[in-house]
Amino acid sequence: MKKSLQLFYSFLKKPQPLKFSHNRKELVKDFFSILLLNFCFAILLLSVLSCFAHFNLVNVYEGPNFLNEYGIIGTFIFVCIFAPISEELVFRWHLKDINGTIYFVSLSIAIIIVSYLSNSWIKFAVVTIALLAAANVISSIRTKNRFLSIRIWKKAYPYLFYFTALIFGLVHLSNYKDLSITDPSFVFYIGSQAFGALGLGYIRIKNGLIYAILLHALYNFICFSILAIVH
């Protein structure tokens, strides 16, 4: 476990699109080390948030209550199956594909811009321009020096990796009613998701998308089980 965490820490210092590892023993160690690390961080963050909330140092926001809304079976399907598969496809698939990366960055920027707009036609135009811009960049890469493009991609990869984790965290702002980035306490509410995205990204890059989905599903299943028992 110690070695797995050391390798993860080394990766975080300079993320790179690693070659796939076929070492099953190492995979199991990495998988459960990242899982435990994510839970430890989440518990630490929740403890700090609870302490701050007790002394009225942060605002308290209402989180999602899927059990009341969808029931146990519906919540299980949504949280443990649908969310891990869809979120990993959207937020981690592109980490090994330069074309997917271009589309992800373009659409992420477009969605951030759109979130500040009210006119539907302007929103549509922004997203359309983002897609066309991404397609144009990909077309240029294919007709020009692809090796140079890959070199640039690798140099920019650390920024891409952390950008992906940040966007993943920010998306979860919608889980809390009235919470936005204008309130500094948002860090405590989405910090565990952003941090968890780092481990999920690492597993996806090193071992493949399916293992990132499984890790995400297992983490959610444990959280779901605890909430179901308490509920």
Rank of each mutant, 00 (worst) to 15 (best):
V28S: 04
I226C: 04
T143P: 09
D178V: 13
I141K: 07
I85L: 13
Y202M: 03
V114N: 07
D97H: 12
K3L: 12
H94P: 06
I81K: 00
V105N: 04
L57C: 11
L67T: 10
N68L: 11
I181Q: 03
G169P: 01
L57H: 11
L218P: 00
L117M: 14
K25C: 02
L198Q: 05
G169W: 05
L179Y: 08
I138G: 04
V28N: 02
I222Q: 08
N23P: 06
L209A: 03
I213Y: 00
S192R: 06
R204Q: 12
K3C: 06
L95P: 01
I213L: 00
Y176E: 13
H216G: 03
S50I: 07
L57T: 05
L12A: 09
G201H: 01
L5Q: 04
L27C: 05
A130C: 10
L45H: 09
Y70W: 15
L148H: 02
A212Q: 01
V58S: 05
T75L: 08
I138C: 12
K14Q: 12
G71V: 10
L117P: 03
Y162L: 15
T182V: 02
G63R: 15
I112F: 13
Y103D: 08
S115C: 10
P84F: 05
A125H: 09
A194I: 11
F66S: 11
I122W: 13
P84C: 07
F221P: 00
L36E: 04
Q6F: 08
